[in-house]
């Protein structure tokens, strides 16, 4: 089972989800993708992407690099680039009938017009 990391820290929505989707497209079912993101919308949108594309969201956690420092730094000390960020662990499922996109939706669209 392969593992990939997508570092989307510093990117604004919808880019973190686009990076995740691009990584997923090139990966086989069972691949574990870890996504790091600082954009607040990622908290909602990566779980929503997993639901819409029928992939498993195994874990969501908030990582704080500041908390690992034992002594509080003075306020004017340089902070790490991303002192806190979100970490998502996504496990790709095979593209089943629930995966959206492509043929059927297009057909529904043509009928609606």
């Amino acid at each position: 089972m392969s593992q990939i990391q997508v570092d989307a820290r510093g990117l604004r929505c919808p880019l973190p989800v686009i990076r995740l989707a691009a990584a997923a497209q090139e990966s086989a079912a069972g691949t574990v993708i870890t996504v790091l993101a600082t954009d607040s919308a990622a908290r909602h949108d990566i779980p929503a992407w997993c639901r819409m594309r029928n992939h498993e969201l195994r874990e969501v956690s908030e990582v704080s690099e500041v908390s690992e420092v034992t002594e509080a730094p003075p306020t004017d000390a340089p902070l790490p680039d991303h002192p806190t960020y979100l970490r998502f662990v996504v496990v790709l499922r095979p593209h089943g009938p629930n995966a959206s996109g492509g043929g059927t939706s297009r057909a529904r669209w043509s009928r609606a017009t």
């Binding site: 604004r12 929505c13 919808p14 989800v17 954009d39 607040s40 919308a41 909602h44 949108d45």
Partner: peptide, 23 residues
């Protein structure tokens, strides 16, 4: 969507329903 709000926060309604917030 967050990018459309002055606070850069996604709508609390979308977030509460678990909906996709971008686009």
């Amino acid at each position: 969507s967050a990018c459309n709000s002055s606070t850069l926060q996604a709508s609390h309604v979308l977030a509460a329903t678990g909906a996709l917030t971008h686009g």
